[in-house]
Design a protein around this nucleic acid. Structure first.
Lengths: 340, 340
DNA sequence: GCGCTTTAATAACGCGCGTTAGTTCCGTGT
DNA sequence: ACACGGAACTAACGCGCGTTATTAAAGCGC
């Protein structure tokens, strides 16, 4: 292929070949409303495009139209299932709209984050998606205000930016409800760090489900497992070693890794899952949930949907439309496996 | 922020503010060699840039300089640990070079793949990275020939395109060697589908290690596990049920999931890992390898390094430099855990 | 004072395209 | 015959920038 560094085909080439002006070519390419182009002319132009293998230059186009077509997506890490799902959702939604995603990872480093943001602004992104690995408050560099921004899985303390969050409350409710429906009345809850939004929301849902079922929540059944398998193991031991009449017959765990710890504690005591103790996890970490014995019933964080919705909102904002909801929550679906 | 749709700051604004011409500003921005700019002038310009909050327009820049700065990366799926690692590697290498990655997923659909490629060419990518989930032959759409292309984890049947592949042979060698070094002499090998490059290469390494140790490879110790845990379980049973004097004391498995199957077969027979039977996996699927009991010693596929190297090669190609090696192989490092 | 080189800066063109304001041509009505 | 309105097209400008050719000023030896 000697066509490497030679000049590429441009719109003028197409125009010349089709015997029309460049303007006309542009009109058919964007099928400009109000432009009357006879079929014959249109055909000739399309033919020329095909013969020459012409491809519009997206950059030049963006410059002339003052519309870059880019959205930026900043995540903390690219690796890891969470970010990947957000990317997948955002990506597919964006491409279907002929928009493109400029993806960057901050790796938790403010300097990298700032650099990424700079690059995005230089590329004139029309909107910015900012996603975190876990649900929490963030504060963005000032530069982010230059462009419509939507937060994914996080929110800003000032509450100025629109955000998309998992519905922790309904997640906690759904998990607990599932266990209640299975006949359990003493449901232990091994929670995450009680100070974080996920822990607070899920506990709220947990208690609501209990009350709805006519059960008064027993605070001593709620123990933080501090997000680790070991921590959850300890917490589970504490719950399972209560007097038999008082012992929970079901455990709702803050995440799947914690459920692993709970599994250990349960099995150690010769109890069976789900017969003696039922377990529900959170996060749906495929490689854990699907390989534990028995397979773990758990709630999925809707990362892909959050990515999709994020681009939705950005598209609206970029088009100058107002947002109907400033703070969107998305349900966490329950994935039934065999631990309940 | 009323600055939303108002005109952005341009280079001319900076020039006016600094009392110089636009050209001069451009010169200091790109610190053009050969341009003599007194410190005082430079300072005034930088000051103006700062005061106005000027950001160069990457698109316009690309148009004028005829250098888009983009590389394209096409993967099969964005989700999944493999793609994520390639992206991480490629991304960090690219950004450090002030280049950017336009990422797309084909989802295994040729139509999506073609569409992605089209978009990338319209964005005038200066190079293309094409990565697959598993090591195999591919054939790219013709359009890919319009731009320097490097294959990652795959190769084209015609052998025309440069490619980066995991060194399966040395991987197989290293795994086997590790087991031999631990004193084992009968090493079973539960291989992948024997027709694929990974299986072929690893077997070659496996046999070389044996021969080097003065052991004649016994073909009956090599059984395909067909890449599934169940298949590997069956294969392991077959190997472990041989007469004691003939039974392998070590198993090398084609991937970590297969190692899981092997674990089951071993434990079922009351044998202990690694005391009675040692196991080595492949792929280093964190969530499997790190959570099996005992933790699995395994080889990692060097996806991140492959991504990095890919951008390296593209950068060279885009700069018009010839490649020293058309076909690069990268070692698979051994991760020692507790199963040997 | 005069030519000459170096330093400091600029005017002007082009990258590939979208778009506005025209222009030309043709058919119709009177 | 003429004006007229629409259909079919085009010339020309500008998007924000890199770059080349050119100019103006300053320094220097004589």
């Amino acid at each position: 292929m000697a066509t490497n560094k030679t000049q590429r085909v441009t719109m003028s080439d197409v125009a010349r070949r089709a015997g029309v002006s460049r303007t006309t070519v542009s009109f058919v390419l964007n099928d400009k409303p109000g432009a009357a182009i006879p079929d014959e002319t249109r055909r000739r132009i399309l033919e020329a495009i095909d013969e020459l293998g012409y491809r519009p230059n997206a950059g030049a186009r963006a410059l002339a139209a003052n519309r870059s077509g880019w959205f930026g997506l900043i995540t903390e890490i690219v690796t890891g299932p969470f970010a990947a799902e957000v990317i997948t959702g955002a990506q597919s939604r964006a491409w279907s709209d002929r928009r493109f995603l400029l993806i960057a990872a901050s790796e938790g480093d403010p300097a990298q984050e700032a650099a990424a943001l700079d690059q995005m602004l230089e590329h004139r992104v029309e909107g910015l998606l900012y996603a975190t690995t876990w649900h929490r408050a963030v504060s963005l560099p000032k530069a982010a205000r230059e462009v419509p921004t939507v937060l994914v899985n996080c929110y800003d303390a000032e509450g100025e930016l629109p955000c998309i969050l998992p519905d922790e409350v309904s997640g906690g409710y759904r998990a607990t409800r599932r266990l209640l429906d299975a006949g359990h009345t003493r449901v232990g809850f091994i929670n995450l760090d009680p100070a974080i939004p996920a822990a607070i929301g899920r506990r709220e849902g947990y208690e609501r489900a209990l009350r709805e079922a006519g059960i008064t929540p027993d605070p001593s059944l709620v123990i933080p497992g501090w997000a680790t398998a070991d921590g959850a193991y300890t917490a589970a031991c504490e719950l399972l070693d209560r007097p038999a009449a008082d012992r929970p017959t079901a455990l709702f765990c803050g995440n799947d890794r914690m459920a692993m710890g709970a599994y250990d504690a349960i099995k150690e005591r010769g109890l069976r899952i789900p017969h003696d103790v039922a377990v529900v996890g959170f996060d749906n970490q495929e490689l854990i949930a699907a390989y534990l014995r028995p397979k773990l019933t758990t709630l999925a964080l809707p990362f892909e949907a959050m990515g999709t919705k994020g681009v939705d909102m950005l598209a609206a904002l970029a088009a100058g439309q107002p947002l109907d909801t400033h703070r969107v929550t998305i349900d966490c679906p329950l994935l039934e496996r065999s631990s309940v």
